[in-house]
Design a protein around this nucleic acid. Structure first.
Length: 812
RNA sequence: GCCGAGGUGGUGAAAUGGUAGACACGCUUGCCUUAGGAGCAAGUACCGCAAGGUAUGCAGGUUCAAGUCCUGUCCUCGGCACCA
């Protein structure tokens, strides 16, 4: 029998599957549905990398498996095609982004098909196609009409090198996500989505719907991803309270989570951006102005790197502690952030490390009001920041922190000096970008009518294609007269078109809805199609999207639910991440490190099945794993041996081997199915290897048993499985066959190996008939020479018996 | 600092509280040959001649029995971070 020739076989089957249209989801079906989705790729010029292959293989196995189990599977693929790299490339070379993108998509498509992935290409979508972004714009208008998209002047992150603003999520640590250059703060008019409206649960059409926080409890997602989102949202409960300013009608509102420490407040601090700084009567206003100027000139990064606390006393200004009525000095200092809480804090040096450092530097009083109940020694030079028992706090003395917080909040409310307040770190989502290669924001500015949404009939607002990509460093949209100059849809006066485009994350926040009905020209997706397919049952992609894409997509779903456009609350019921595949040197694959392994090259040498299987065999899907080309030969051998096992097929034989082999076979059927359902592909493959090792010891193989192998391999190594199916002269394609049922009766062991322990230590193993009771086993064991030796002369205290597994004789 | 996930052979890794290291790579020895990115057989945690003992980051604990459960501690990776 000839060796398995993947080079000939793989393209042949890929063509066959395409021609037979085997992977198209059924529009009408009585089968249960399963929507299995990959995060769609950005079609970069570099082509597919190992991480794509890992993720797409996992969902492919999963999809093929559920099809064999009789499910109507929707497994689509598309392109997240807008974005900066194509535009920057255009500015550098003059090649239009649509051309670059088109080429990249062709290459991606070729690569994906060459690995035998079973996508339903009839639903392919491309976010840069007007037929898609028409609906991105339409959805924007729905949000605008509902007040969920708004424009405001705000301090925003600006990247000078990318010439655009960035979302907070894209400017973490004061550095541009894309190019790594320093982000500066600018005051600009920008478009925002009101993501902050959806943090908590709310009433929609008389029903409570889950917000971004509590919704996390309803989905099957990795704990780390849920935690990252909670972290990013940054909910904290506390109180806001008013410090009245002496000789003024102003008051300083501070936010704190530790109102229990209020009696230790010895000063108040305003952020440099705080509006009161310019309103108060300050004696040393020149000094303060100088401080504000230096604080403003610092970049985010500098401000964070400076450990030393700085600030200036506002001379002539004092504020009154709402509880004690005591006057305290007021400072302006940049360790207080303008953008969080009220931009003002009460300082309690004894119980807050930052306030402590500041107080030491400026020689301010430190008053202890909390003592540890656990007798923990407070380190010298440190504030005691734990909860404890109150002291020096008048009638609150002796209370525990938690108790005191409640009572104090009540007192504040009763006396109208404060209120319970919840703060969040999450800001509204800044979605406008000063770039060309994105979906235009469908807004027109009219001198008379103001902000006018583009009428639905005029959608899509298409990108001008006749623009010049001269390397000016600026988006060509800015200079496109034809694009800018429009007529106001309301009054007909000359008007100006919004020239900003939307963040690409807007496009990817709803694409999973479009797959349900990707060809529809009337609506973004029909209610029937949405009802048939959504929500997504299983979603797979990189953990780097834990906050950005996944949070935005959840927001979009919740917003559309509120608008009555979808009927569900969470878009992705189950989420898994593929782990990063590192280079063989243990570093992240990168061109500069020269450790990149190209999937095309590997597939050429070992075949698509071997590449797919090896990536799954390397370890748990979610783990980070170093690539090792040597390891793939083990998989190659396994596939060859599977194929060659056919040489032993004896058509007259009804079953391979004895009861033991049959038991293993059916146990394997059960295990492989269970493992695939749990994304444990590594152990599914090893189970098949164990089975193969056993079957190879048999002189002859029954046709039906070989058939089981082909069926089990079909999701994992689909090309080889088809070839094996042909050897059996099976009907049609194994891809359309039904997943085998494990025979429970055959799985019963006739003989078992039992462990014999004496005093908890393994002393002997015995092979006995299955199902023997304790007495029978004891009789066998006590006759055993080795066991006798260990038990001799000792008193048997207890026998622990686990049927068919273990017997432990506890001796004294 | 806070939150999350982890620490098991030379390597990638297995293990519903029940024989730790399955499966695979690599390595050692042998066989075979249509010299192929072959195939087959045996072996491969550590100490010990053996009997046996020791091993899942470290220290304790629970249990007849712990990689697995509990307490503490160290380290690695990921996210957030002057968030009051």
């Amino acid at each position: 029998m000839a060796k398995y020739n993947f080079k000939e076989s793989e393209p042949r089957w890929q063509k066959f599957w395409q021609e037979q249209n085997l992977f198209q989801a059924e529009q009408t079906s009585t089968k249960p549905k399963k929507y299995i989705l990959d995060m769609f790729p950005y079609p970069s010029g570099d082509g597919l990398h190992m991480g794509h292959v890992e993720s797409y293989t996992a969902t492919d196995i999963y999809s093929r498996y559920w099809r064999m189990k009789g499910f109507n599977v929707l497994h689509p693929q598309g392109w997240d095609a807008f974005g900066l790299p194509a535009e920057n490339y255009a500015i550098k070379t003059g090649v239009h982004p649509s051309e670059t993108t088109k080429k990249a998509i062709e290459n991606f498509t070729r690569q994906i098909n060459s690995l035998g992935f079973s996508y339903d290409w009839s639903r392919e979508l491309n976010t840069s196609d007007p037929s898609y972004y028409k609906w991105t714009q339409w959805l924007f208008l729905q949000l605008y009409a509902a007040g969920l998209a708004y424009k405001k002047k705000a301090k925003v992150n600006w990247c000078d090198s990318c010439q655009t603003v960035l979302a907070n999520e894209q400017a973490e640590g004061g550095v541009c996500d894309r190019c790594g250059s320093m982000v500066v703060q600018k005051d600009l008019e920008q478009w925002f989505f009101k993501i902050s409206d959806f943090i908590e649960d709310q009433m929609v059409a008389g029903k409570t719907v889950k917000g971004l926080l509590s919704g996390l409890e309803t989905v099957d997602w990795p704990e780390s991803t849920k935690a990252a989102q909670r972290n990013w949202i940054g909910r904290s409960e506390g109180v806001e309270m008013d410090f009245t300013v002496d000789n003024s009608d102003q008051k300083i509102v501070v936010f704190t989570t530790r109102v229990d420490t209020i009696f230790g407040c010895t000063y108040v601090v305003l952020a440099p951006e705080h509006p009161l700084v310019s309103k108060l009567q300050i004696e040393n206003s020149t000094e303060v102005a100088e401080y504000l100027a230096t604080a403003k000139s610092k970049t985010e990064l500098e401000r964070m790197e400076t450990k030393e606390k700085t600030g200036v006393l506002l001379q002539g200004v004092t504020a009154r502690n709402p509880f004690t009525g005591v006057a305290v000095p007021v400072f302006v200092a940049d360790y207080v952030l303008g953008g969080y809480g009220t931009g003002a804090v009460m300082a309690v040096p004894a119980h807050d490390q930052r306030d402590y450092e500041f107080a030491v530097k400026y020689d301010l009083p430190i008053v202890e009001v909390i003592t540890s109940e656990k007798n923990i020694a407070v380190e010298a030079g440190q504030a005691f920041t734990d909860d404890g028992k109150l002291i020096n706090s008048e009638l609150y003395n002796g209370l525990h922190s938690a108790e005191a917080r409640q009572k104090m909040a009540t007192w504040l409310a009763d006396n109208q000096k404060g209120r319970i307040k919840v703060n969040y770190k999450l800001r509204d989502w800044l979605i406008s970008r000063q770039r060309y290669w994105g979906a235009p924001i469908p807004i027109i500015y009219c001198e008379f009518c103001g902000v006018v949404p583009v009428p639905e009939k005029d959608l899509p607002v298409t990108l001008p294609t006749d623009v010049d990509f001269k390397p000016t460093g600026e988006s060509p949209l800015v200079n496109s007269e034809a694009f800018h100059t429009v007529i106001c849809p309301l009054c007909g006066a000359p008007a100006r078109r919004e020239s900003d485009t939307m963040d690409t994350f807007v496009c990817s926040s709803w694409y999973y809805l479009r797959y349900a009905d990707s060809e529809n020209a009337e609506v973004f997706a029909s209610p029937e199609a949405l009802k048939q397919w959504l929500p997504v049952d299983v979603y797979l992609g990189g953990a780097e999207h834990s906050v950005l894409h996944l949070l935005y997509a959840r927001f979009f779903t919740k917003a559309l639910q509120k608008l009555g456009l979808v009927e569900f609350n969470e878009p992705f019921l189950m989420l898994r991440h593929q782990g990063i595949i590192l280079g063989s040197d243990g570093n992240k694959m990168s061109k500069s490190k020269g450790n990149v392994v190209n999937p095309d090259e590997i597939a050429k040498v070992y075949g698509a099945d071997a590449l797919r299987l090896y990536e799954m065999f390397m370890g748990p899907l979610e783990d980070m794993k170093p690539w090792n080309t040597n390891g793939i030969v083990g998989i190659s051998r396994f596939l060859d041996r599977m194929y060659r096992l056919a040489e032993k097929i004896d058509a007259k034989l009804t079953q391979t081997g004895g009861a033991k082999v049959q038991s293993l076979l059916h146990k394997t059927i059960k295990k492989v199915g269970e493992d695939i359902e749990q994304f444990k592909f590594n152990t599914a493959i090893s189970a098949l290897m164990i089975l193969l090792n056993e079957l190879e010891k048999e002189p002859v193989i029954a046709t039906n048993d070989y058939r089981f192998l082909a069926l089990m391999l079909s999701p994992l190594a689909p090309h080889l499985a088809e070839e094996m199916w042909q050897i059996l002269a099976g009907e049609g394609s194994v891809t359309q066959a039904t997943w085998p049922m494990a025979d429970t009766a055959a799985m019963q062991d006739v003989e078992v190996t039992m462990v014999v322990q004496v005093g908890g230590k393994v002393r002997q193993t015995i092979t006995v008939a299955a199902g023997l009771d304790q007495n029978a086993i004891m009789a066998i064991v006590m006759a055993d020479e080795v066991v006798k030796k260990w038990v001799e002369g000792k008193e048997m205290v207890k026998i622990v018996f686990v049927p068919d597994k273990l017997i432990n004789i506890v001796v004294k």
